[in-house]
Simulated scan of single mutants.
Amino acid sequence: MVFSVGVVLCLGLSAGASPATAATHAGPSTASKVAVTVFKNCTALNAKYPGGVARAGVTGNLVNGKKRAFTKRPVFSTPLYTANKKSDRDKDGIACER
């Protein structure tokens, strides 16, 4: 007996969206191929990444010691976060969060 199992992956694309664009907004690992840049300050970092930069695996923003949902979703990239770790004043794993 031979069994065949097939898996189909479907991505819902909006009009005009390319498959590469749809795949980059899939989840926390979205920024795995972000160029590592050291930014001078949060103003410079937020100009490119409005929600800040987070280590991979961070699930929320710490506000007064309590985990809160993201106001603006950060880019998840451990190498980029590490390069800009000096900008994470509250040490919650998110640099320059908003």
Rank of each mutant, 00 (worst) to 15 (best):
R73I: 05
L62D: 12
R89W: 02
K91P: 05
M1Q: 12
L62P: 10
E97C: 09
P50W: 08
V58W: 04
G6A: 15
T82G: 04
A20H: 05
E97Q: 09
P79L: 03
N64Q: 13
C96F: 02
G65Y: 10
P19A: 07
P74V: 07
G57T: 09
K91G: 02
C42P: 00
K48N: 13
G16P: 09
A22C: 06
P28E: 13
V36M: 03
T24A: 13
K48Q: 14
T21H: 04
M1W: 12
F76H: 04
V38S: 13
T71N: 11
N84C: 06
A95M: 02
K33T: 15
V58D: 06
G57I: 10
I94H: 00
F3E: 14
K48S: 14
S32I: 12
R73V: 10
T82I: 02
V7I: 14
A69V: 05
A54L: 02
V36I: 08
P50Q: 06
C10K: 15
A44F: 07
A56Q: 13
F3P: 06
N64K: 11
S14D: 09
D90Y: 01
K72F: 09
F3Y: 13
V38Y: 09
C10I: 15
T24I: 09
C96Q: 04
S4W: 07
A83I: 01
T37F: 11
N61P: 00
A83E: 04
A15P: 06
P50N: 05
S18G: 11
G52Y: 00
K72L: 05
E97V: 04
K33G: 10
H25F: 14
A69N: 10
L11G: 12
V7K: 14
S29N: 12
K66I: 04
I94C: 10
E97N: 12
K48L: 03
A23H: 00
C42F: 07
G27V: 01
V63F: 01
T82H: 00
L45A: 02
A56K: 02
A15N: 12
N64I: 06
V34Q: 12
R55C: 04
D88N: 11
C96H: 04
D90C: 09
A22N: 06
I94Y: 08
D92Y: 04
N61A: 10
A23V: 01
